[in-house]
Design a protein around this nucleic acid. Structure first.
Lengths: 125, 125
DNA sequence: CTAGAACCTGACACTGACGTCAGAGGCAAG
DNA sequence: CTTGCCTCTGACGTCAGTGTCAGGTTCTAG
């Protein structure tokens, strides 16, 4: 498929796909005229990339981790594996942090609800 | 206290404190010579701001929800309250997304561990 | 062949919370 | 007064993924 279809099916912009390729995260075959062509598997690949980006990994980090995805059995994935584990730990810590923030928001919301309830019982507004 | 002490005690940079003030999130009294002075409570205030930033709220958004923090009983917090709730929901969705990403990483890690174990049992590396 | 959609490269714009530098003034200690 | 650290304002730099525009080529339908 060409880049437009891949973009639609993976739910990203064409610009992003070119960027991923520029970062070495996504490969394409080129037709004689220079147009990019992708196999079906590229859709899942891009979705995977999106998920890693969503996890806060940078392009560089994703590039270093990808060998673990593509060839989990090669030695090249030694440092990649460590990177992946440390990224998972970083992500876990980040999640914990966000959970604390959410708890704080929940408390604030509860406090405000109590006040609002008090106000509403006095005068609607 | 002056800005340097507040920065140390809250664990942020002096630059950040000035930025927060510029965004209307942190107030200071000025001495005759223009230096900023803060009460003890400013430490917790800055920590609160940090937590909201960590939750992915922008300066503008924080500014809009702060009335809920400062005066939970005022009407001014009506839209602020809705904003706070929607930010909590956004944060929850974000956390769910990150959890999925972490699960994916965990699966990748498990897969790689199996391969590494196989390798190591054959030849240490 | 033609119109128009899709594609190409290249490059600049943007966002947003800061880092950092410059040049100047403030303040406690000796 | 001097030394040295702290603070001030102002402004430009950074990062990183993506938007967007420009100018040109390629593909597809009729």
């Amino acid at each position: 498929m060409r880049i437009g279809e891949l973009a639609r099916r993976a739910g990203v912009s064409v610009r992003s796909l070119r960027y991923y390729e520029e970062q070495g995260l996504l490969v394409s075959e080129r037709s004689g005229s220079g147009q990019r062509h992708y196999p079906e598997a590229a859709v899942d690949r891009v979705i995977l990339l999106q998920r890693l980006y969503a996890g806060g990994l940078s392009s560089r980090t994703i590039g270093e981790v990808l060998p673990c995805v593509d060839r989990p059995s090669a030695d090249t994935s030694e440092s990649a594996f460590e990177m992946m584990v440390s990224e998972r730990d970083r992500l876990s810590a980040h999640i914990e942090d966000l959970l604390q923030t959410r708890d704080m928001l929940d408390e604030l919301i509860a406090t405000n609800r109590r006040h609002n309830a008090t106000l509403r019982s006095g005068s609607a507004g």
